[in-house]
Structures are given as structure tokens and as C-alpha cells.
Design a protein around this nucleic acid. Structure first.
Lengths: 151, 151
DNA sequence: AAATATAATTTGAATATCAAAGTAATTGAG
DNA sequence: CTCAATTACTTTGATATTCAAATTATATTT
């Protein structure tokens, strides 16, 4: 098998399964009541500042209506708080509760494990190579298909 | 930014958006009436032989009921043919139509482009190294999380 | 021959999503 | 200043996807 085919095979398997894998990892952990989409909303809200609904909806690429119901559920489950902004009362600010921050950290750990594993046993030259390749893939999407309007 | 942080940032973005990105790439092409899930069913059926419903369902990780409706839709759209096996009349064999094969090839080209782009400017020694790195990531999933029953 | 197993389909329910309509607050043109 | 337009968000209604369980048809085993 050529290098190209080998790389394709591994990439396909990784990419095809990544969401599934992440979801299953979630399901065997402490935060099993979260879907992967909900976890990504939590990830996007982040640890520190409050975020508006619109900014979050744009960042996670759903309509604001969809985000409203997603946040309703996350509030019910105790991961998110919602309040109206006092400066502009149309605006709704959301932020993570303590449990939300725990979930965030757990998800962050998952990613750190992944990266640590990926970089394990690599010297700095090899790390540079990996970054070059990942950057190429990133470019493939953002440049070749930029007219579809990502990033 | 450290190598770890850089890798993490790119991986997070790629992994979080990969299906979305692939679907949008699909939507700007000739096969815009296919969802990314449907394309992956087509990819799994493949070019050559007929496949059974059960095998395909297992491979794409959906229940057979879900696959039945997915195939119903793909037949309606003209990408797949279905016939009952004459050896075992419980079994249903599916295969791609000519249009299905075109869609398959288009998707294959997409992946080839991606890999070519990823391997741009790498010499063969670097390609070998990349395979080692990707294999590490693959192992990370299949070993550390094998108890959840993948692969 | 009857019981069991297998392959696929159908059914019914749950979830996620979007577009469009609706509500409330702010901004800006005159 | 005022009211028309815009903005931010929520609600509504419709569609799509999925699963588990029940069903149908066929094959295998006892």
C-alpha cells in the first residue's frame, strides 16, 4: 500500500469515528448526561467570561433557535446559567455553573490526553512535521473551500 | 505557543468540524442531494460487489432499521439498487447504480485531494514519520478506549 | 414438524435541527 | 422626539434521523 493510501486509511478511520469515539468516551465518564454537541457548547462557552447567545450560536454553527433549546436543556441539567444583560436587555448572557466548569475541564483533559498521546515519543523535529501536516489539512479546508464561508 | 498547544488547537478545530466541513464540501458539488451520512453509506457499499443490509449496517454503525430507511432514500434518489438474494431469500443485497458509483468516485477524489494536500512538501522519509504519528493516535483510541468496543 | 434463529422491514417515540413568525428592546432617520 | 427599522432572542411548526421493539418472511435445528 502506498504512503498516500495508508495515510488516507488512517485519516478516514480517525475522522469518520472521531465524534462517535468522543461521544462514547463521554458516556463512560462522569458526564454521561451530556451529548457531544452539548459538550461542544460547554467547550465554547468556556471557563471565564459570560458569552451572548448569538456569539455562541455562531461559533457552534447552529441557528439561535436551536441554541435556545440546547441551552434550555443544559440549564435543566445544571451546567449553564442564563441572565439578561442589564446594559442591553435584548441580550442574554450565558455562563457555566460549577458543574459546567467541571465538565469543561474533563473535556479539556480528554483533548490533552489525545495530544499527549499523539506527540508521545516524538522529537521536536517530528513535532514540527506533524504541525506542518495538520496545517496543510487545515489549509485544504479553509482555502480550497473558503467560498462556502468557514472560519 | 507550544507545539502541544498548536497541535491541540488544530486538532480540536478539525475534529470538531470535520463532518460539517465534509458535508459543506459535498453541498457545493454535483451530489448536493446527499447528506454526509448518505455519502458514507455509499462509500461503504463500494464499487465492486454487492453487500448485504446487515453487513452494511454494522459497518456504518447504525441499526438495520435505520439503514433500511437510509437505503429507501438512496434508492429514491437513484444511487442504490436493492434485490433479494436468491440463495437466501431473507437476505437483501444492495449495490451502487451508475450514479452511485459516480458519487463514490467524487468522494474518493475528495479524500485523495485531502491527502495530497496534507502530504504536500513532504519527502518520503517524512511521510513514513507521519504514518508513525497517525498510528500513535489510532492506537490511543483503540487501546486506551477499547473497552467501549470499537474497531 | 415444530421450535428457534436470522435478515430485513415497519412502527412508534425521542431528539435535533431549521426557517419563519413572534416578542421585546434598541437605534437611527427625519 | 418619534416611529420605523433593526437587533437579540424565543417560540412554533415542520422535517429528518435515529433507535428499540414488534412484525414478517425465510432458513436452520432439534
Amino acid at each position: 500500500m502506498s504512503n498516500h493510501e495508508t495515510v488516507n486509511e488512517i485519516l478516514v478511520r480517525l475522522f469518520a469515528n472521531i465524534l462517535d469515539i468522543e461521544e462514547k468516551c463521554l458516556k463512560i465518564g462522569e458526564f454521561a448526561d451530556l451529548s457531544i454537541t452539548e459538550m461542544h457548547v460547554i467547550d465554547n462557552i468556556g471557563l471565564t467570561s459570560e458569552r451572548t447567545m448569538s456569539d455562541t450560536a455562531k461559533a457552534v454553527k447552529v441557528t439561535s433557535g436551536t441554541l435556545t433549546t440546547a441551552i434550555d436543556n443544559l440549564i435543566k441539567k445544571g451546567y449553564v446559567e442564563r441572565r439578561r444583560s442589564s446594559e442591553d436587555r435584548r441580550v442574554v448572557k450565558i455562563r457555566l455553573t460549577e458543574r459546567g466548569r467541571e465538565a469543561y475541564k474533563s473535556h479539556e483533559d480528554f483533548h490533552k490526553d489525545l495530544v499527549t498521546s499523539a506527540l508521545e515519543q516524538l522529537n521536536s523535529q517530528e513535532e514540527e512535521l506533524l504541525i506542518k501536516v495538520l496545517t496543510n489539512i487545515d489549509k485544504f479546508f479553509s482555502e480550497k473551500y473558503k467560498h462556502a464561508g468557514w472560519y
